[in-house]
Design a protein around this nucleic acid. Sequence first.
DNA 1: CCCTTTTCACCTAGGTGGTAAGAT
DNA 2: ATCTTACCACCTAGGTGAAAAGGG
Lengths: 172, 172
Amino acid sequence: RRMFPTFQVKIFGMDPMADYMLLMDFVPVDDKRYRQVTSRYAFHSSSWLVAGKADPATPGRVHYHPDSPAKGAQWMKQIVSFDKLKLTNNLLDDNGHIILNSMHRYQPRFHVVYVDPRKDSEKYAEENFKTFVFEETRFTAVTAYQNHRITQLKIASNPFAKGFRDCDPEDW
Amino acid sequence: RRMFPTFQVKIFGMDPMADYMLLMDFVPVDDKRYRQVTSRYAFHSSSWLVAGKADPATPGRVHYHPDSPAKGAQWMKQIVSFDKLKLTNNLLDDNGHIILNSMHRYQPRFHVVYVDPRKDSEKYAEENFKTFVFEETRFTAVTAYQNHRITQLKIASNPFAKGFRDCDPEDW
DNA sequence: CCCTTTTCACCTAGGTGGTAAGAT
DNA sequence: ATCTTACCACCTAGGTGAAAAGGG
């Protein structure tokens, strides 16, 4: 399914006339698997326990922003939203979705690749990309929401979940 | 609304590595306005009468195939379908749709533009495009279908009209 | 009378969390 | 007990012709 909340960036400092590819990938934060703390009274509490060593990682896939390649001017003119990016726990996925292990922690990474027009551009591959990491975007992958406030946030903010709203999101 | 049937082309002979823009426009076939022949018994017959001189033509708009620009290899690898192209009779349209006069005859035209990488490419504009006209694609623009067989063809072949089918299109 | 516009039920296509059943 | 899967009603978004209403 789509990642929620959506990863969005505002970009500055590109060459407006040059082509760039924008992409994301996900790297494990640690080598652990997590589980929920259970309380007799709360459906799901807000804390996580380490539940052992991480499952084997899959070869990391990459998600290209579907507008890639595009000119710097195009990328900078508005916020770039990775709302088409989809996550799955299916190791055999053949839709090109990002494969993650459920109950593991991940760090999203954002990469900008300059499309070098030179014939021998492969030689300059190392200097033609830049990676950005925002630690505040770390998350635990799950198959079902473990936190009612995330569920409510999504119901309030995602138009596809309107069916579950019980008040106007403006009042929320 | 979308043009039906959709204009589709199979392309050969491009430079696989070069960029091309693909586009369509529509030119009047003649300077006439048409009307339906009415019979007491047939809802709409299959012939047209000249009903006078054409209405003033609008400045002709152009529809770029939304995948433009793309490499020759991409365009040649499968049939190119202009299924997003929309027609309107609204002279004030601001959705960029193709504006046509209803009850007038049109000739669709297909244009291939080579994206010249040279700095002074404007100088070569005349030699960098080629126009293709298929006379069998001429049609009369209408606001409502005038021919039951066209209606039935569309109901049978367009998935959005499934609600009007009364038998399996395989049996048709 | 003939054509155009508006509205509508009915589709396609696909993104939601809930829920019940399944798995470990 | 905890997590996963499959299915579902309910949405968004938008493409159909039919039919009723409108216009000259």
